[in-house]
Each structure stands twice: as C-alpha cells, then as structure tokens.
Design a protein around this nucleic acid. Structure first.
Lengths: 376, 376
DNA sequence: TACTTCGATGCAAAGGTTTGCAGAAAGATC
DNA sequence: GATCTTTCTGCAAACCTTTGCATCGAAGTA
C-alpha cells in the first residue's frame, strides 16, 4: 500500500537510483528526467521513507528535546523556537518531559539516542559527570548548565540577579531572601552565587530558603517562612514560584509591594497578569531554543555519522567545536517591587534604578565565548 | 563505532538471529544462551536500532502529537499524560506545534506520516474532509473534534456551557455574551450551540462575539466590545481569553464580578491565580491525552502494518473500530461570577447553583459511545 | 533400534533507500 | 575519424533488523 521509490521508478521509466538522486542530488539528473520523475512522485503521493534513509545515511533528521517540565510556562517558547528552527532545516523535534527527575532524564537520553541525530538537554538535573558520559553516546547541547567540553547555551542569570538585588537595594531594602530552585539546577546555584555577592556589595543581608520545587506550590509553601524571616524583599528562582509566593503572602494578609517586594525570573507571559504585576528578570528563552538547535545541527554537520567504505576507520582526531553561548537577561520592573524601609537613606555606590519601568528590549545578540576543544 | 547486533552476536558466539530473538521473542531462546547474550549486550552497551527495526516490522514505536499551540496552558497536561501513557507502552511521542494554522497542520501530518505509527490530532483547525483524507495516509485519533468514521476523544463542552449559562441565569443575568474561539474549532461551535440553546431556555439573550484568537490578547481585544454590548455576564471560549478579558475590563475600570461576571473554559492552573479567581468549566485534559494514546495504540495493534509474505494481499475487509469517547466536564465556581441585575427575581425552571464553590472531582470514567465500522 | 517430536539455533531474504563505480551516449578536441 | 571529456543513468552493495524455513541434536515412543 505505501508507495515506495520503486513505484515511482516504474511509473517514470527510470531506475530507482535516478529517483533517489532526483530528491537528494537533483543536479546530477537531467532536467527533463527530473521533472518527469517529480511529476510521477507527486502523482503517486510518494514520500521518502525516513527510516530507510536513516538506516543508510546515519541521519534521522530528528532531534530530541528533553526538558524538565512542559507545564512550566518557561519552556513552551523555547520549544516553539527550537521546533520552528529545526523545521527550517528539515528536522523534526521529539519533545520529552522528565518531571524534574534526574533518573528519567538519563533514561530518556538513552531511549532517544538511536533515533535522533542529537539531543537538546534543557535545564538538566543530572550530574555533570553523567552528562559528559551520555555525550559520548549521542551529540548533546546543554541549555542552562555550564559544562566544559560541551556546547552550552546559557542565560546570564548571574547578571540578572545582580540587577535585581541592586534594584532592591536601591529601593532601600536591606533584609532580603532568595527562594532557591530545585537541587541540581545550575541556574539556581548561579543565582545564589551572584545574588549573595551583590547583596554583600550592597550591604544587605540575604537569607537563602530552599531548595524548592520550581512551581507555584513551591513558592506558596515558602510564604510563611518568608514572612517569619522578617525580610522586606524576595528574589525567587522563577516567576512561577514568585507567583505562588504572591498568592501565599496575599493569604497571610501581607501586602506586596508595600510590606514585601517580590522579584521573579523568566518573564513568562503570566507575570504581566498577576496583581500586582511581577517585576522579573527576563530570560531570552526563544533565542535559547533557536541557538541550541543551530549549535546542534552545526556540530552534526561537522562530524559525518556513517564511516562506510574503507576498512579500519582510523579515527584521526575528530575536531569538536564546543562553543558556549551566553545570552543576556534584563530586569523588567513592574509593580511587585517598591520602596523599602531604608528608602531615601541610600548608601553611596548603590546605583538607584530609574523610576520608569524598563521595557524589555529585543533578545539581543548572543555574547559568544567560543572555544575549540580537540576531543578524541 | 555504534555497536550493532552483529557485535553482540560475535561476542556471545551465536548467530545474529539468536540475538534478535533474545530481545523480541525471549521464550524462543535457551535460558543459558539468553543470559549470555544479555550480558554481552549490556557489556557492549547495545541498543537495537529502531530505524532498522521499523523498516522491517513497519512499526516505528513513535506517535505524533499535533497541537495548535504549546504555549496555551491547556495543552501541557494533555501532552504530559499522552507522553507518559505512550512511554508505558514503549512508545515515544513527537510533539509538533502548528501555531493555530490549518495549512501547517496538513503539512505536519504528511511529514510525520512515515515516521510514526499514528498521529494524535488535537483541536484541529482543518476541515473535516481534509482530516478524513489524511486519515487514509496514517492512523489518526482526533481530539476535540467529532468526525464520523474516525476515533475521537471529545470533551463535553456542550454540557459545560449549559452549566455555565444556567449558573449565570441562576445568578440573575439576562444579557450575556459568548466570546467565540478561532474559526475551524469544533469546541467553539459546540460551545456556541449549547450556550445559545441554554440561554434561550433560560430566557436570556446571548450575543456572540468573534471569532477570536484563543489567547489572552484575543480576550483583551474584546473587552471594550463586551463593555459596549451592555451585557452583565460573559462566557469565554477558554481561560486564556477569559483572563485577557479580565485584564481588559480592569483597564476600563469595570469591576468583576460586581458589574460583569466572567466564566472561562479549561480550568488551567492559572485560573486559580487571577484576581478575582476565575469561574470556569474544567475539562479533563490529562484523561483526554491518555485516552487518545490508548485508542491509537489499540487501533494500531488491530491492523498489522506490513503485509509481507503471500502474493496478492487480498484486502478481506479490515475491521476498524472507531470508538468515540466523550469525557465529562464540570463547572468550577470561583470568584469571577456574582449576582446579576435580576438576582432574587429568578424565573422558575432555572436551577439556582449552590452557593459553595464546587470542588473539581476526579476526571471520572469516560462515557463511551463505541461504534464498529467496516472500512475497506 | 528406528522413528517421531520438540526445542534451539542457523540461514537467508526482505524492507526502502543511498552511493561508489561503471557504462553509454553525446559532445568537444585535435 | 579517433580519442578524450562530460553528462547522465544503471547496477549492486550496504545499512541493521526481523522472521519463515531448514537443520540438528536430544529426548520420547513404540
């Protein structure tokens, strides 16, 4: 029933190899023949069987996309961008969800390895060493994790945290809390590192609460803790947690931003819809998706998959380019942050943020810190 | 470099066919041999090549999932459920996003057809006839669209709309509006049909506004229109639009629910977070995802794909079961609906909804309306 | 002992495509 | 007119599995 290359060949009176070339190397076939073949193919509704093609070329034209949680609104823009970028290059995307589980992650990489040309690992929860190990099984691009020797797409949440803390300090806050993210998250560590340093520089105290699940519930559950800690400003690991916190504080009768200021990270579309609207560190998720796909496909064209032909395939030192791309973030000031108890009594050296809300700019050009590494 | 079945065969001193059987028909191989082979396979890190297997068995063990818009929070729970159900059965899910575009939908079905065993078409925007035509190319299960002769998973939004309208009428509303969804949406038509009938029965007027894009922006853009229409209650195509509408009304200084009551559809997690919290018709999205996968895989085991062997494969009338599953919805009353101008002056026959908010019950058992159809 | 049965394994074809190589026909060069 | 190119097409092997059939040895039966 399914129409194969053979049917087309028969219908157009040429050999199957000519049909094959009509599609994969058109310049090698006579224009007249080509149009005839194409007409027949169109007519019969022929579509090349990708499995068969994959078998011989070693390329499936699929890429895997492993993410922690589709339900987190942070990811869909990334997925959409990755998908559309992939589609442009005639690739398809396999999306898989790990439910924030490191074990599921490993399992999925294995399962995907043989049926994709590469995997995008987004916000992994696995250990670095495990990721490195898996990268020997299938080409990997890692998003939101820095890993020497592997291509990474990073968002500069450190800079974002710094801006957020400076913004808060500028508003006169001295007692702050950081709602940490899940264990195993590079972003969370990065956030914590940068926020601590920035707080110290601004002469403010920073209490770290967590780790927490990166969800509304995670934020909600910490509301009381935050309240008891006596802080006047909070930076949350992501917007979802910030929103949960907003909920929880509201339930406790704590007013935002009058009593406590809240800052999120990600700038998901939801953050414009809460009351008060959320001040947040915008991360360029779509750009990250696009960039990651590009890097994977780049890497992929570098190293040909099938070593057919001649006997002992002497591995002459495959050259793997492992660029690391750092994408910029930006603080978007809305209504969930306001003056703290020390407002007006600012310390010198802490830059006061301008009064008007920043509008989020274009994702901007990636700051590329490329490095070449020669692997075996 | 990649380890094949041949490597395992060599290492364990048996023929490749024995290795193959060790995995696909273990009962046919001697237990001792089996453990030896398995040990070698484990040792070498062998994973069967799914492309090669697909080529001969005709099954890819992948399924395609085509949805209108991943960024719509309605879909992620469906995707997660589908994925986890598929994984249980050793299947993987290809997720693709059409950006609400009917043409992209068709294109994607074609592209996916050859590399999946079946496709889940969620909330399609294509015409019925096109869907039917595509279903001859690849097994299809349709979600949120009723189509004779094809397996469908439906949510009873009609019932939901009825409950919503009755709830509003019970609160004393007589002038209502329906914010329609996108063109081509079965759900939107269904909603409109049921809401109109229910409004008529309750002696209320129902103005239909739309079609609209099913997004916050779509709802926001209609706020002024709604205001001008002089209605006191609105049923929106989905929660996202309802939330956008909430925004827009707020901007116009219209208070919800004091001046206008708003009801959404879907019960996305966000609807608990808006102020006021959204009254909405909960749809069993996760159950829909699970059910759809089950139906697809069921259908798939029914009709063997490859007709190898014996000469003319006389099609003796393949029996296609085309069950249609209708899942129940439920009205969840929160804070965005309140008394209308006719409160207290209720007409007999309109059941007043209880005051306490309904808690959403378990997804419940599907109401199955199964039918057997003999196709060629 | 001769014959059947049965369980385990090997053999080889098949699935749809790509691709190096070879052959043919046509055109160019001398 | 012979030789060399060039352009196009055909041939057949290869990719990695699965699977119907054949084989073979051992156990069971008469």
């Amino acid at each position: 029933m399914p129409v194969t290359i053979r049917d087309v060949a028969r219908a157009s009176g040429v050999h199957i190899s000519t049909v094959s070339r009509t599609f994969s190397a058109p310049h090698l076939v006579n224009p007249e023949t080509r149009v005839r073949v194409l007409a027949c193919a169109e007519d019969l509704g022929y579509r090349p069987n990708r499995a068969a093609r994959a078998l011989i070329t070693g390329r499936t034209h699929n890429i895997g996309l492993i993410i922690a949680d589709i339900a987190n609104p942070f990811f869909p823009p990334l997925i959409k961008a990755a998908e559309s970028q992939a589609r442009h290059r005639d690739y398809h995307v396999f999306v898989a969800d790990t439910n924030e589980d490191a074990a599921a992650e490993e399992e999925l990489v294995h399962a995907l390895a043989k049926q994709v040309d590469g995997v995008l690992l987004c916000s992994p929860r696995m250990s670095n060493s495990l990721i490195e190990q898996l990268s020997r099984e299938v080409p990997l691009v890692v998003v939101n994790r820095q890993l020497a020797g592997l291509p990474c797409v990073l968002m500069d949440v450190g800079q974002g945290a710094r801006s957020a803390i400076e913004h808060l300090a500028g508003l006169g806050h001295r007692q702050m809390a950081l709602l940490a993210g899940p264990r195993g998250s590079w972003t969370s560590r990065e956030l914590r590192r940068a926020a601590s340093a920035a707080a110290r520089a601004a002469g403010a105290d920073l209490t770290v609460l967590g780790p927490n699940p990166p969800t509304e519930t995670g934020g909600l559950a910490q509301a009381e803790q935050v309240h008891r800690a006596g802080v006047t400003a909070v930076l949350a690991y992501n917007d979802l947690m910030a929103i949960g916190l907003l909920e929880g504080l509201d339930a406790l009768g704590v007013r935002v931003p009058q009593e406590i200021s809240v800052v999120g990270v990600d700038d998901i579309s939801l953050s414009r819809l809460t009351r008060p609207k959320l001040t947040t560190v915008a991360t360029p998720t779509a750009a990250a998706g696009r960039t990651a796909v590009d890097m994977l496909l780049q890497q992929d064209t570098d190293l040909p998959r099938t070593a057919r032909g001649g006997g002992a395939t002497v591995a002459v030192g495959v050259r793997r380019t492992t660029a690391q791309v750092m994408l910029q973030t930006e603080l978007v000031i809305r209504d969930s942050t306001g003056p703290g108890p020390y407002a007006g009594r600012e310390r010198p050296g802490t830059a006061a943020a301008g009064p008007g809300p920043h509008r989020r700019a274009d994702p901007g050009n990636p700051v590329v810190a490329a490095g070449d590494v020669v692997a075996s």
